[in-house]
């Protein structure tokens, strides 16, 4: 990944910055310039917002043939995570016992290394997920900044691939 691209994506990678359409209130992650539902009606109305950093696993898989850069982490888990704000995210689930990873498990975001541009290149940081201990109160590592994090639940509205550590076929 080029340095400028990584740098440009820091808000979404570190802090789950999404975009909310001012016309239909749809929430998109990664953020979009134009709402695919409202199209030109959304121009100039896409506002940045931050996802709360909690979610629920809707599907998951265990990866044994790693993507480049993930060789030391096999086997690792990649999951589709439903954010309460609407977007469906793809992310790696770490630090969680295999029996704790299941459809419906509550997860929260954590800040981790997601890759690096070789031994001498830039280190890429971003968001991964851990399964919340049973009975634990939902907690996000996001720091409140006063920015809006509300939004109606729009299940399956957009299915964004987020830092997918899976090998392309």
């Amino acid at each position: 990944m080029s340095v400028p691209r990584f740098w440009r994506e820091i808000p979404q990678r570190y802090n789950l910055q999404a975009a909310k359409c001012g016309a239909c209130e749809g929430v998109y992650f990664p953020p979009r310039e134009v709402c695919p539902a409202c199209r030109r009606a959304s121009i100039g109305k896409m506002a940045p917002m931050r996802l709360s950093g909690v979610g629920t696993i809707v599907e998951w898989t265990r990866v044994h043939k790693p993507a480049p850069g993930y060789e030391m982490q096999v086997p690792y888990t990649v999951a589709l995570i439903q954010a309460p704000e609407g977007p469906l995210l793809t992310g790696q689930v770490v630090d969680s016992a295999s029996e704790a990873i299941h459809v419906g498990a509550h997860v929260r975001s954590v800040f981790r290394r997601v890759g690096q541009d070789g031994e001498a290149g830039v280190i890429h940081y971003g968001t991964k997920w851990v399964v919340e201990a049973r009975g634990a109160e939902a907690r996000s590592d996001a720091v409140p900044t006063g920015k809006a994090t509300d939004g109606k639940r729009r299940k399956g509205r957009n299915k964004a691939l987020f830092q997918p550590p899976v090998r392309s076929p």
Partner: peptide
């Protein structure tokens, strides 16, 4: 962890402090 370093540890501690 395999994906943890001083930056990630610092961020987790700092986020708790700011929260």
């Amino acid at each position: 962890g395999l994906d943890e370093d001083v930056a990630t540890i610092s961020v987790e501690a700092a986020r708790q402090a700011m929260r």
